[in-house]
Design a protein around this nucleic acid. Structure first.
Lengths: 151, 151
DNA sequence: GTTGATCTTGATTTTCTCGATGGAGATTAC
DNA sequence: GTAATCTCCATCGAGAAAATCAAGATCAAC
């Protein structure tokens, strides 16, 4: 499971939105500057995430984005699956050698393994919400700043 | 975790080799025809897998490939990691916004999640060997042929 | 030494990803 | 109403990676 740069950006942006969930709308530019994400690219990503129902937007001069639901109700499983596509994927059989659609036993065996892997990943990601991610980031921030003084 | 076509081919080829482990060497062409894999491409793949120490080859007119170890001793974790690279990967930070190398708290939080995912995947793949895959394929073949008569 | 297989290397084709661009639509401030 | 500022939408291009093809070198068996 590889998280693309796009997916990484999406997650980081949503963490910012989660941190500001009670404060309301956040502008794209704010997120862009804070996280070092190209603004135009972030527009696309958030727009896509909005189609998935994870965030809401408001246009105009006081516009921006905010989470559509409380961060406790957004699991990473749903989020990553939407942004990245399938969590674990096999290549579509462009050919099976024969008349098309029938995978052979070896392919099916591999598929069954991948299914187990997917289940296992889901076990992890379904129990981590955006709120959890926020909490982790908050703790890490504390660890980090305390380390800063040491150095 | 996405299995590339290359990785899929590698696994399927090694399943064939595992099935013929006691019968000795198998030619590339045999695997190629049986699994519908482009022969030239398969050459590269098996050659690569050989560098990883998973298979041995013999040249010449009676040449071909065979597993370097019994199929019970080859785990999918080792195999897939070698063929596909990292099981779970984050994009390398091309930039952090600042002077280079320091990821912020959000990135670290995401990283910690990905670490958990990786552990979870390993739990699955380390307990499945090529021999297991063979066994699954064998069973599936039986199910499949019995289904054929129904249709 | 001929044959048939792997080995090696490189070129080519295809596909995906990242990110930029330009403009259209919406909303608020004045 | 007008201007400013933001989201929205579609497209496009560079670059990288994946997949495939191709040709010559090397080696073993007969």
């Amino acid at each position: 499971m590889k998280l693309s740069l796009r997916g990484d950006y999406a997650l980081r942006a949503l963490i910012v939105l989660a941190e500001n969930y009670d404060r309301g709308i956040v502008r794209i530019q704010t997120i862009s500057e804070q996280q070092g994400i190209p603004k135009r690219f972030l527009e696309q990503i958030l727009n896509d995430v909005k189609s998935g129902g994870f965030v809401e937007s408001r246009r105009g001069i006081a516009g921006g984005y905010q989470l559509a639901r409380p961060p406790e109700q957004i699991t990473l499983a749903a989020l990553i699956r939407y942004v990245e596509g399938a969590l674990v994927a096999l290549p579509l059989d462009t050919e099976g050698g024969r008349k098309g659609a029938r995978p052979d036993a070896n392919q099916l065996a591999i598929r069954s393994v991948m299914k187990e892997v997917r289940e296992s990943i889901l076990q992890v990601l379904e129990h981590i919400t955006l709120a959890d991610l926020c909490e982790r980031a908050r703790k890490l921030r504390h660890d980090d700043t305390s380390l800063d003084y040491v150095i």
